[in-house]
Design a protein around this nucleic acid. Sequence first.
DNA 1: TCAAAAATGTTATGTTATTACATATCAATT
DNA 2: AATTGATATGTAATAACATAACATTTTTGA
Lengths: 133, 133
Amino acid sequence: MASHHSQPELKKNQKLVFDVLKDAANPLSAYSILDLLRGEGFRAPLQVYRALDKLVEFGLVHKLETLNAFVACSHDDCALSEPAAFMICDACESVSELGDASLSSHLGKLANTENFALKHTTVELHGRCKNCL
Amino acid sequence: MASHHSQPELKKNQKLVFDVLKDAANPLSAYSILDLLRGEGFRAPLQVYRALDKLVEFGLVHKLETLNAFVACSHDDCALSEPAAFMICDACESVSELGDASLSSHLGKLANTENFALKHTTVELHGRCKNCL
DNA sequence: TCAAAAATGTTATGTTATTACATATCAATT
DNA sequence: AATTGATATGTAATAACATAACATTTTTGA
Ligand SMILES: [Zn+2]
Ligand SMILES: [Zn+2]
Ligand SMILES: [Zn+2]
Ligand SMILES: [Zn+2]
C-alpha cells in the first residue's frame, strides 16, 4: 500500500537515522548519530550523511547551520514549505521550530526588493528559552 | 589621539586578517585567509581564528554560518546593532548585507511571543543575485 | 528476466575548528 | 628599572565535521 505522500517509504538507514532524531530531546551531530547507531551496524560517517541528505531533501529533518547538527521536523508540512525559523536555547539546547508565514513573506519581499531570486532561507535565533531565564 | 569609537585599535594579526577580508570580493574561509597570509608569517589556523574571534566581537567581520566563511562588515554600525540578514548568491558567491530594521523588529516580536530572551540572530538568504538570473 | 537506478559498505581523504602549552608584548604599579 | 598581570602571539597536536572514490547489493520498472 503506497503512502499518500509524495515522499517514498524510507529506506533502512534513513529510517534508523530518522528514528534516532525523532527520539532525541536535542539536536544531534552526524557523528553522535553514528555512535548511537553502531549497534545497528553503522561503521562510517557516510552512512549517516547519506541518510541525512535524503531526509533533509524530504523535509523530514532540518540542519541547524549554527550548530552543525540536525533535528527531526516538528511539523507535517515541511516537505512543501520550508520552516520559517528556529529558536535555539544556548543553555538547554532545546530547539523550537516556527512556521511563521508573515516572516516568510517578509523575507520574500526583502529579496524581491533587491531582485534576488530566493531559493532557501536560514533563520536561527539564539538566546534563552523561557525555562532557562 | 584616541579613536572616538568604542573599539580598540586593531592588533597586528587582527589588522592583517581584516585587510584581507576588506579586499576580498567574496567571503573567505579561515584556511583561505591563512594561505593568503603565509607571506606575512602566518603558519597556523589559530592565528587566523583568534583574529577572527576579535573582529567578529568588534562587529567588523561577520561569519556566514551557511558557508563557514567570513566577510568584512559593509556597514559602519554593526558594532552596535547586529546585521539583519545576508543575501548570498549561489552562482557568483557575492554577498550583500542588509540592515532591515523591520526584519529585526519582526524577529524580536517573534521571540517575545515565545518568552524567548533573544541574544543573536542568524539570517542567511540563498538564491541568485540580479546579475546571475 | 534483465538492465538501469538507487542504496549501501568501506577506506581514505579533505575541510573546519579547538585544546594545550609555551613565549612575547604591553601597561600599570612599586 | 623591576615586578606583576593581562592580553596577544607562536606552535604542535588533535578534535569535529564532511566528502571523494570505488566496490557491491538491493530495488525498481520495462
Ligand atoms: Zn520542519
Ligand atoms: Zn533553555
Ligand atoms: Zn555588518
Ligand atoms: Zn550572483
